[in-house]
């Protein structure tokens, strides 16, 4: 199964200005440990747009339409990494910068057929302190808090 990660930086002008940058790391969860995924990178393509919305629509309120709408003439600078998954559970860690906000967000994917499903995701609009979220994620995936914190 393939998993996509998005790293991008975007300056939006419309319908209001926002400066956003996101880098993503992903880990396979196995036996209480996290194993960083090896991925192949390429440039963003319009066929990635729905996955992009799925990833960031609720998490940081950013959609492909925003990116198209707001960027004036600058190309959307986004790298897509595709990672092959063997395991069942994946932890994604996002380093996010939105204007003055800087923080770490998490999501947890269950890689079941036919579609992987998201069983946990932070939302920048409703963000508990990082400690609380780390605790929640750690319980959910059975990995020590320290490891989640450092991921």
């Amino acid at each position: 199964m393939l998993l996509k990660l998005f790293d991008f930086r975007v300056y939006l002008y419309e319908p209001y200005t926002r400066k956003i940058s996101v880098t993503t790391r992903a880990y396979e969860v196995e036996g209480g440990c996290l194993h960083k995924l090896e991925c192949k990178s390429r440039q963003f393509d319009v066929t990635d747009a729905i996955d992009f919305d799925l990833e960031f629509g609720s998490m940081i309120q950013l959609t492909y339409a925003d990116v198209v709408f707001g960027t004036r003439d600058e190309p959307f600078d986004c790298t897509v990494s595709e990672c092959a998954i063997k395991g069942v559970t994946v932890l994604k860690v996002y380093e996010v910068l939105i204007d003055d906000f800087r923080g770490k967000l998490f999501s947890v994917m269950q890689m079941a057929q036919p579609y992987p499903s998201r069983i946990y995701a932070d939302s920048a609009e409703n963000l508990a302190p990082q400690k609380e979220r780390v605790r929640k994620v750690s319980r959910l995936i059975g990995v020590p808090e320290k490891l989640v914190e450092l991921a």
């Binding site: 209001y16 747009a49 729905i50 919305d53 799925l54 629509g57 609720s58 309120q61 959609t63 339409a65 939302s123 609009e125 409703n126």
Partner: peptide, 26 residues
């Protein structure tokens, strides 16, 4: 200003907007 979005969508995101209503989580 943007709202807080939709935390309990009725449908998953599987298509482009506006063919994915809704409400979807975007």
């Amino acid at each position: 200003e943007d709202g807080k979005g939709v935390w309990t969508p009725h449908v998953p995101i599987t298509q482009f907007c506006p063919y994915n209503c809704g409400l979807c989580s975007r």
